[in-house]
């Protein structure tokens, strides 16, 4: 499969590629499928983005469809209007997902507001890095949940840690629950 490389400012219709490398500003009109993505700069996609391997993003990426990647490393801002799936994501900055994020393991170092409708999966860890923004979600559900600076409606998990500056309407947990003194939780339910 052909690789795709660009520097500067460009637009493309989309398609299927091997390695994709972007330094600059790219606009994609349709769906883009590739084996790996390395991006420095900014990217706007009108379709969906599917990466069978790793996505390494430094900058700003905005996707109107869904995003699917085995691994994601991000420094910057990622916005996905549809659903997002990944086995492993290490994000430094902000993440917004309009639909459901289904994730094997998420490490988010929060810098700026982030909003996800539903985050579900194995391990979900959110640490406050800097800035005044919060992480917001209707639902966070997984085996291991450890969050800071988050406003969540429902948290459901096996081992749950609610850190400082968090609010939650309801928490359902199985094995353990740890709530920081500077967090506010309305309802705690232990499932047996």
């Amino acid at each position: 499969m052909n690789d795709f490389e660009m520097k500067g400012k460009s637009s493309m219709s989309g398609g299927t590629f091997g390695a994709v490398r972007v330094d600059g500003i790219l606009s994609v009109k349709g769906d883009l499928t590739c084996s790996t993505l390395e991006m420095n700069g900014s990217c706007r996609m009108n379709g969906s983005l599917r990466i069978s391997g790793k996505a390494d993003i430094d900058g700003v990426c905005r996707i109107s469809g869904d995003m699917d990647a085995e691994d994601i490393d991000l420094d910057g801002r990622l916005t996905v209007a549809g659903d997002m799936t990944s086995e492993n994501a290490r994000l430094n900055g902000s993440l917004s997902v309009g639909g459901t994020l289904n994730i094997g393991s998420l490490d988010l170092k929060l810098h700026g507001s982030s909003k996800i409708k539903e985050a579900v999966g194995g391990r979900i860890v959110i640490r406050h890095s800097k800035g005044a923004g919060y992480f917001r979600a209707d639902l966070v559900e997984g085996d291991e949940i450890d969050i800071e600076r988050s406003k969540i409606k429902v948290v459901r998990g096996d081992k749950v840690v609610i850190g400082k500056d968090c609010t939650a309407d309801r928490i359902e947990y199985r094995s353990s629950l740890d709530v920081h003194p500077k967090a506010a939780v309305k309802e705690k339910i232990k499932l047996d």
Partner: peptide, 11 residues
């Protein structure tokens, strides 16, 4: 089964 397993199967 755990949440993580269920969602991995879904992925």
């Amino acid at each position: 089964i755990s949440y993580g397993t269920l969602y991995r199967w879904k992925r």
